[in-house]
Design a protein around this nucleic acid. Structure first.
Length: 186
DNA sequence: TGCGCGATTCTC
DNA sequence: AGAATCGCGCAT
């Protein structure tokens, strides 16, 4: 039997990485490797290719824009924490909290290498409500590996998906980040 | 306690 | 274009 070994993805991003501006973190996560370590030793990992920022009370697209509730409480907590919620009663969506405690923010992980769509991503990584509220790390079996972001030329910005209900100002906010074809091998 | 809706995805 | 599917958030 082959025992899973931690290799280059062993070193994870420090909590301080997530303690910055939500939009900055969303952009800076592109190109980083998302690592999932299952209980039975299997590991799944891949480069993050798409993210979205949800920032503060004023952002009407954010779960937190009307204040703290049971569901979104984790967004008000410390940075680097996993926020998983059930969308449409069908799909789990993965977020990572950012900024300081008390200010509600999170980055939605929408896509990774070989996987498009936030609902398919959690299914691929075998994530569900169990990991909700856990800090990124070995205990959760999920973390972002230290590495390099993609170059600026490889970043595409656009409006967030599926948030028309937030009104024109907030639904048009260019807080969606994707790895585009440009920028060379980096 | 009840009701409408959603940070999506799959099928027709 | 419409269904799946259920917890959340707000109104009663």
């Amino acid at each position: 039997m082959i025992r899973a070994a931690y290799t280059c993805s062993d070193k994870q991003l420090a909590t301080s990485f997530f303690a910055r501006s939500t939009v900055t973190v969303a952009r800076d996560l592109l190109g980083r490797r998302l690592v999932r370590c299952h209980g039975d030793g299997r590991m799944t990992e891949g480069m993050i290719t798409e993210t979205e920022a949800y920032d503060g009370f004023e952002d009407r697209a954010s779960h937190a824009h009307r204040g703290m509730t049971r569901r979104n409480a984790v967004m008000f907590g410390p940075p680097g924490v996993i926020y998983l919620y059930l969308c449409y009663g069908v799909h789990w969506l993965l977020n990572i909290t950012t900024r300081e405690e008390g200010y509600p923010t999170a980055v939605l992980i929408r896509g990774m290498e070989g996987v498009s769509g936030p609902g398919r991503l959690t299914k691929h990584l075998e994530l569900s409500g169990e990991e909700n509220t856990l800090p990124l790390g070995r205990t959760a079996g999920l973390w972002v590996a230290a590495g390099n972001p993609v170059p600026e030329a490889s970043v595409a910005r656009s409006a967030r998906v599926g948030v028309d209900y937030a009104g024109p100002e907030w639904s048009r906010m260019p807080w969606r980040f994707q790895v585009s074809g440009g920028g060379g091998a980096g």
